[in-house]
Simulated assay, not measured.
Amino acid sequence: MPAYSLSGQWSLYFKHAAVLAALTLSTATWAEDNPYSLNYQAQNQGNLHSLQANPEPQLFSGTRRDEDNIRMLENGYDLMGFSSFEAGEVDAEQARNHGRAIQADSILVYMKKAGGASPSSRMEVIKEAVKKGQALTEKDVAVKAGSYRYYATYWAKLPPPLLGIHVIKLVPKQSGQNDDAPTNKVSSEGVRVIAVIHGSAAEKGGVVRGDQLLSINNEKVDDAAQLSSLVRKYSGKVVKVQLERQGEPLAAEVQL
């Protein structure tokens, strides 16, 4: 082998190594500069992430947070965490970049105008100063960069569920807490169904959002942990679910 060939191979190796080092450095710098990464707060204790090895997160523009959250839960997703911050114009692709890093399946991004005077309001200030013969500084007439409030939620697709509901525990109102406010006669027993996953056993059995789930096979359900335990206990069986809907008792059969 000619002497210069070995030399050329080493030269090529060092060039590749330099490129890889530069890419590694730029990736670290990108993560540090990404406001979605810097302001991310995880909301799931179980290190939730996509079932895919290398997911490419879908990016959506959110509209109403509460409704969007319910829709995502109903479609079989669970919340991984969120980012919230105020800044100038930030490319939404940075939200996707962070989603790749944490292995999210879907991302909802919300953006709305924050502080900073609008062009029309600045013009009014200038007009008023001219009328009064007041002097204006460069700061008064400068065009300020827009400021926005950003909020992004990160979601992972869950495995097919046995029952397919998301619930919360309702806490009875304490005596003396806003006694003048109107009250709804809703049972505090059991757990409240806040979302029913589409195509799940619960949906097929007739369970709907807003139901109060009281028991499974006559075993009382006091919280989400107990519900999960009972669902695992009766996995593969048909169970009788006792509900309360708008104050009325209701029974349903569900195939787990």
Rank of each mutant, 00 (worst) to 15 (best):
L6W: 04
R100P: 06
L48A: 10
L48P: 11
V254Y: 04
A135Q: 13
Q177W: 05
Q43F: 09
A129C: 03
L158Y: 11
D78G: 01
P159W: 11
H166K: 06
G116R: 02
R122F: 03
P159D: 06
A129T: 05
D223Q: 07
S188H: 12
L20W: 05
A87N: 13
R232I: 03
G46C: 08
Q212C: 05
V221E: 03
K204T: 11
V254R: 07
P119T: 08
P35S: 04
N97W: 02
N217F: 08
P57W: 01
E138C: 00
S106E: 02
G176S: 07
A92M: 12
S175N: 10
N44F: 01
G199D: 11
Q177T: 05
I194L: 04
K220H: 07
S37G: 03
R192C: 00
K131V: 12
G8F: 00
E67P: 07
G247M: 11
P159A: 06
D66G: 00
F60P: 03
K139P: 00
Y234H: 14
N178V: 12
Y4I: 12
I197S: 02
R149K: 15
V143Y: 05
G115L: 06
N34V: 11
I102Q: 07
V254H: 10
P160H: 08
G176L: 08
R192M: 02
Y154E: 04
D179V: 14
E124A: 06
D66E: 07
G206Q: 12
A129F: 01
S84W: 10
S11I: 00
E74M: 01
V239R: 03
L227Q: 09
S7W: 11
L136T: 14
A92T: 14
V109N: 05
M1A: 13
A181R: 10
E93P: 02
R209W: 00
G76Q: 09
A201R: 12
D140Q: 14
A3T: 08
G164P: 15
A142W: 13
D222C: 03
A28T: 03
L136N: 13
Q255F: 14
H166V: 03
